[in-house]
């Protein structure tokens, strides 16, 4: 089995889909000769040619808008928005057009569009290039939202996103591109809406997304040495959400921590906490703890950025709070 990085796994899903299906094509800023700002699409121009690997002007509204048009016409476009911070410019196209056409046309139109984007802190890109905005899209009916955290997940889920007949916002994390994993040649599609239990545990469930999945796994390791058994669940798909998997896990452990890199306030974890308190209320032995970025624009200074976003130590602290037994606050 070849070892693929997260970056190569994304490229592999795109390339295999394009070999498999003439309707699939990609477009975005500098994705052709340059191979994308993160190098994800390197070499694809040579294989598929400029008709199917299309550079676009610097207009996110045009990138997404033309993707919607192509999708309605029967193609399966995958468009790239270079930084998720720039999704703001294409908000009208995503929220009012892509998400609504199927509904407004009474089902006559469908929009099988995948919008790939990436972001995240950890390399000092500054306040306008490091945000995590996935939660904004979870509240828009008509969209599906995916946030994959490993090479196998990103490849299997991107495949499912491309072949989904609805618009999918597909989040990748900048710091995960180098992460490697051995993968089979053949892609095994991962159904949208299915969580992954990364690690079984008895005492606390950590529901984590994106980079925080890995921070949570590190925290779980550390907690294990302190005698606390931690289960780590990655929803992978934020909309639709695999509520059953999360609730089943919390019913087993009786405690829950939610963790993501986005700010805690109105973060995706708030929704998970609401689901858990409602569906597993009588199983909770401690309040749901939330881990996320401090409520501030992301600083450019590396030490300040590190201070603002959460790490394994923050997850560990939250785990310890849920099992705290000394009677004090």
């Amino acid at each position: 089995m070849p070892e693929l990085s997260y970056r190569e796994a994304v490229r592999d899903a795109l390339s295999q889909a394009m070999r498999n299906d003439e309707d699939v094509f990609i477009m975005g800023e500098d994705i052709a000769e340059m191979g994308g700002s993160m190098g994800v699409t390197q070499g694809m121009l040579e294989e598929f040619g400029p008709d199917r690997v299309r550079n676009t002007p610097i207009s996110e509204m045009a990138i997404v808008g033309s993707g919607i048009g192509a999708a309605i016409q029967g193609m399966r476009p995958v468009v790239e928005v270079m930084y998720e911070d720039f999704l703001t410019i294409s908000m009208e196209q995503i929220v009012n057009q892509a998400a609504k056409h199927r509904y407004m046309s009474g089902g006559q139109l469908k929009v099988p569009l995948t919008i790939r984007t990436q972001g995240g802190a950890g390399w000092s890109p500054g306040a306008q290039h490091a945000q995590q905005v996935e939660a904004w899209f979870v509240g828009v009916p008509g969209l599906k939202v995916v946030f994959a955290s490993t090479p196998s997940d990103v490849r299997g889920l991107l495949w499912s996103a491309i072949y989904d007949d609805n618009p999918v916002i597909f989040f990748e994390h900048r710091t995960l591109y180098g992460l490697k994993e051995e993968l089979a040649e053949e892609i095994e599609p991962i159904p949208i809406g299915q969580a992954r239990v990364h690690r079984q545990g008895e005492d606390v469930t950590v529901v984590a997304t994106g980079r925080l999945v890995h921070e949570a796994l590190a925290a779980a390791e550390e907690a294990g040495q302190q005698g606390v058994s931690v289960e780590v669940v990655d929803p992978r798909t934020l909309q639709p959400l695999d509520e059953d998997a999360i609730v089943a896990s919390v019913k087993k452990t009786n405690r829950c921590v939610v963790a993501h890199e986005a700010v805690t306030r109105m973060g995706f974890g708030a929704e998970v906490a609401a689901v858990v308190q409602h569906q597993a209320f009588d199983w909770l032995d401690a309040p749901v703890e939330r881990v996320g970025a401090k409520f501030t624009p992301l600083p450019f200074a590396p030490v300040m950025e590190e201070y603002v976003v959460p790490h394994a130590t923050d997850v560990l602290e939250a785990i310890q709070k849920t099992v705290q037994r000394d009677g004090s606050s």
Binding site: N254, D285, A286, K321, Q324, R325, D326, G327, S328, S329
Partner: peptide, 12 residues
């Protein structure tokens, strides 16, 4: 007698 945070009675 609760032994959880703030004297909360917990399952144990």
């Amino acid at each position: 007698k609760g032994t959880g945070p703030e004297g909360r009675v917990v399952a144990e």
